Amino acid sequence: MAEGLPPQYDPGTVERKWYAFWEEHQFFHADPASGKPPYSIVIPPPNITGILHLGHVLNNTIQDVLIRFKRMQGFETLWMPGTDHAGIATHVVVERMLAERGIDREEIGRDRFVEEVWKWREQYGRTIVRQLKELGCSCDWKRERFTMDEGLSRAVLTVFIALFEKKMIYRGNRIINWCPRCNTALSNEESVPRDEQGSLWRIRYPLADGSGGISIATTRPETMLGDVAVAVHPEDERHAHLVGKQVSLPLTDRSIPIITDAELVDRTFGTGAVKVTPAHDFNDFILGNKHDLPQIV
């Protein structure tokens, strides 16, 4: 006697059965020699900082729709899967995990810490792959990669050397995001900006020739000792007669020039005159390079 349909759909039983069938018959595997027109997607590799969230579910569902659609249209499709080491983000979560176990990263040393990171990668890398499979993602799992695989690392090094030899990569001073706790540089994506209520300070810089002065407006008076110029807008008539003159920097024995810049000076902000501190502000760094100003750190 035939069995009837179960009263409720059991996704675990049905989906695992058919996904295993798809994998067994290599329906997701791409054959570059098939002669079919190619269509490929490289998965934005999920970070191994933890398990997938709903954002990953949405993103990978869209990719799966595209790859399956093209597969049904007769394309030779490749959806390249992988995971991302995530650098400092993984460093932080592993350090936090060790702290919960009463282990200090500094005490165990670098080699032991790296071992713990690889253990973390093994655990969460497997979990992420399992989650993607349970979502039904039709990736070519024979081509799964990790961003720190030997081949990928060698490719990065090869390209870096090639760009260096073409003088497209060079060493220079830059203002960076710095984490004082981790003692490392952070990318803009790893730095979370926070707005704070501040004050706008006005400071009068006397002209070096004693004929007057100019008032600047700043939210960072504490960086004044690193000033190397005062900038005004070239079309600001209030300060036109001062351009090219020198001012005495308060609290120092240095004189600095009054310059113009139309891109980085907003004449409607404050007094229309700003101090330029290339070593302590991102915009000032750009302005300093543009006008060949020194950096005082």
Rank of each mutant, 00 (worst) to 15 (best):
9 Y>G: 01
15 E>D: 11
21 F>Q: 15
36 K>W: 12
39 Y>E: 00
40 S>Y: 09
45 P>T: 08
50 G>L: 01
63 Q>M: 14
75 F>H: 09
78 L>W: 05
79 W>V: 02
79 W>E: 12
81 P>V: 00
85 H>N: 09
95 E>R: 11
96 R>K: 13
96 R>Q: 04
98 L>A: 08
104 D>A: 04
105 R>C: 05
109 G>A: 04
122 E>Q: 13
124 Y>D: 03
127 T>W: 15
131 Q>L: 03
132 L>A: 05
136 G>D: 12
144 E>M: 15
144 E>Y: 14
146 F>H: 03
146 F>M: 03
150 E>A: 14
157 L>E: 14
160 F>V: 11
161 I>H: 11
169 I>G: 00
176 I>S: 07
182 C>S: 03
188 N>V: 09
191 S>N: 01
194 R>E: 15
196 E>M: 05
199 S>Y: 10
199 S>K: 11
201 W>K: 03
203 I>T: 00
206 P>S: 00
208 A>G: 04
211 S>A: 12
215 S>C: 10
223 T>M: 04
227 D>R: 04
236 D>R: 03
238 R>H: 10
240 A>H: 13
245 K>E: 04
250 P>E: 09
250 P>S: 06
253 D>Y: 07
261 D>E: 05
264 L>M: 13
264 L>Y: 15
265 V>I: 14
269 F>E: 02
275 K>N: 03
280 H>P: 04
283 N>G: 07
287 L>V: 02
289 N>C: 12
297 V>P: 05
